[in-house]
Amino acid sequence: MLVRAVLAGDPAAFAVLVDRHAPACLRFASRMLGSREDAEDATQEAFVRAHRALARYDEAVRFRTWVMSILANRCRTTLLHRHRRTSRVIVDGAAVEQAAGPSTDDDAELRDAIERALARLETAQREAFVLKHVEMLSYEEMSAITGAGVSALKMRVRRACERLQVLLREDGYA
């Protein structure tokens, strides 16, 4: 057990946990925040907080679920502060630049379109959609991460999908 190894004084074991779970965490944070820099900061902070609280880790919960729950909170906090600071939705800077210029790649256009659409979802719906259809988690694990009930999460995912389809259609995607 890697967590036990870290607690026993083996710092290398935590590096293994980072290598195992950081890619998914970075992806989740990137889709939630729409900014690579913010995603990297949130993920780093989530791992630091997880490391600090490692003695309180409950082995009955998967480490991925635990660190994801910390990260989800960090993302919500980041979005809240961002909203207070700017009162507008910010999408990834690189995506905006690409969207503003001519695109020669259909895939890149669709990718830009879904990122813009994702940024227009309510936070709770975006979170549910990303956990379900990007991270491919079960509703039970999503519930453990978000603290929301399974029924509420199913409703959020459904509404997120409906909204995304509308937004994609507006961009010319059927």
Partner: peptide
């Protein structure tokens, strides 16, 4: 689009 978002 969702499959694109799964890229790490």
């Amino acid at each position: 689009a969702a499959s694109m978002l799964r890229a790490e």
